[in-house]
């Protein structure tokens, strides 16, 4: 199994002479591996995810996703690669209104190599597998738990190498949070995707065999 993620000397700061908001010597994630990254609010956890996804430019360093240097790719090549190789899950789900649950999942496939004729079936199958019983309903008519499932389905729809989860349980009560994490971790295991989950929730630690703290500069990882 190859590496899903490899970070080397990654740094990001907003101003040229300002402090490094993200400062990581090295961090890697094997295919299918799951890592919890913790840290205080404002420590740059979300920024790190956007850097990995190629949505922000680092001040220094290198990010390899599935062996590909994300920031060496330019323009639409990087966007297309992100669409294929990276799935993202957000605290507020960020499902699009005006589209049904299944269409939200199909939106992810729209930018992939998956044949168009397979989009609808794949989306419905995936949603059924994750327990979404109303795939044609708009997200706003679904319960929070069902919305979470749609968001997870969208993230893994293109069978990415890496799933990035940004505080996925921050807006859920403890009972639902546990269920949501079961879902995310299970979906990643099913699709073989590596999972990098950032959270400041201390109760998440027991779910991950591998954890790291952004507060410890250099991202000393605990294996």
């Amino acid at each position: 199994m190859g590496e899903a993620l490899s970070i080397t000397d990654l740094g990001f700061r907003y101003a040229a002479a300002g402090p490094w908001v993200v400062d990581i010597d090295a961090l890697s994630l094997e295919a299918g591996e799951q890592l919890l990254l913790t840290g205080r609010s404002g420590r740059g956890k979300s920024t790190l995810l956007y850097l990995i996804a190629g949505l922000m430019e680092p001040g220094r360093g290198r990010v390899l996703v599935h062996g590909q240097d994300m920031h060496a790719l330019r323009g639409h090549h990087r966007d297309e690669f992100r669409g294929r190789a990276v799935g993202m899950i957000f605290q507020t789900f960020n499902l699009l209104h005006g589209f049904s649950a299944a269409e939200n999942v199909m939106l992810a496939m729209m930018f992939s190599d998956i044949p168009r004729a397979e989009h609808a079936k794949r989306a419905h199958d995936l949603l059924a597998h994750l327990g979404v019983d109303r795939p044609d309903a708009p997200p706003e008519q679904l319960s929070i738990g069902q919305q979470q499932r749609v968001a997870v389905a969208r993230a893994v729809a293109c069978r990415p190498a890496l799933v990035l989860a940004d505080e996925p349980t921050a807006s859920l009560d403890p009972e639902n949070a546990g269920g949501a994490m079961d879902l995310i971790q299970g979906a990643c295991r099913d699709t073989g995707a590596a999972l990098l989950c950032v959270s400041h929730d201390p109760t998440m630690a027991e779910r991950f065999r591998r954890r790291a703290s952004l507060d410890a500069l250099g991202a000393e990882t605990q294996r």
Binding site: D79, R82, M88, N94, L96, A108
Partner: peptide, 16 residues
């Protein structure tokens, strides 16, 4: 803007 941002995350290029 949120819709655009989500589409970008999903793989839509700026040009698209």
């Amino acid at each position: 803007r949120r819709q655009i941002a989500v589409l970008r995350v999903l793989g839509a290029s700026r040009g698209r």
